[in-house]
């Protein structure tokens, strides 16, 4: 019986196997890299209706986060300031600036400025700002160095893993309560690690790891 297949056919199964493995690997790598909020959410930097510069207001004016996001330490929600908050200063400072035209209009008419929400957890996630900032979790952990941003972007991934990293080891992320709004704070005390553990214990910082802690 003559050979139906040429000799090279012996190699075909190997090629197919090799090719498939490569393809599957590439697809898995692609999914891993692109199909999580680390890719889909992080880096989101929408154009805001008013080009508010956080770094200017924090560094040059020295505003505390709570001057505008007033109820972050008293409420689930970190409030976006109403236009009268801007006008507290801007009725006097840069009162005729074109950049602030929309703020003045909003203040006079009562119509809201339509800020674009950047950090938006899914609706099945319960997140309470007050319990975090009042137990030594700084703004910077979730929102990044907003004090250095001229235009705010989504700095962190906001994956569930991102939350759990801290919920499992709060002592690695926590800081003294009076430094929560100091986004430049770095532990200088060499004994801070022990203090942080004591803080977690004494302040009864017990971040839930159960499903219903956040998905309630």
């Amino acid at each position: 019986m003559s050979n139906i297949f040429p000799e090279v056919a012996n190699k075909v199964p190997r090629w197919i196997l090799f090719g498939l493995t490569l393809k599957v690997l590439a697809i898995i790598a692609g999914l891993y890299y692109y199909f999580t909020p680390s890719y889909t959410r992080a880096g989101y930097q929408p154009v805001q209706p008013v080009s508010f510069d956080h770094s200017l207001h924090v560094k040059q004016v020295g505003l505390d986060c709570r001057y505008c996001h007033t109820f972050v330490d008293r409420s689930e929600h970190s409030t976006v300031p109403s236009s009268n908050t801007c006008m507290n200063c801007h009725s006097v400072v840069k009162a005729d600036s074109d950049k602030l035209a929309l703020v003045r209009e909003s203040y006079q008419t009562g119509e809201s400025i339509e800020w674009v929400k950047i950090h938006d957890t899914p609706d099945y996630v319960y997140f309470n700002h007050a319990v975090h900032v009042n137990r030594g979790v700084s703004c910077v952990h979730c929102h990044g160095q907003v004090d250095e941003m001229e235009e705010v972007y989504h700095a962190k991934s906001f994956t569930m893993n991102f939350c759990l990293d801290c919920h499992r080891n709060p002592e690695e992320f926590i800081r003294p309560v009076d430094k929560v709004y100091d986004l430049q704070w770095e532990p200088e005390d060499p004994e801070w690690e022990e203090q942080a553990q004591a803080f977690v214990h004494d302040w009864k910082v017990m971040p839930p790891e159960s499903c219903s802690g956040c998905h309630r």
Partner: peptide, 20 residues
């Protein structure tokens, strides 16, 4: 790449109950 800045609205690959 991950984390590169973008003006585009975030994609919702699995939008189930994300917005209620």
């Amino acid at each position: 790449f991950r984390g590169s800045k973008s003006r585009k609205e975030p994609l919702y690959l699995f939008p189930d109950m994300d917005r209620q």
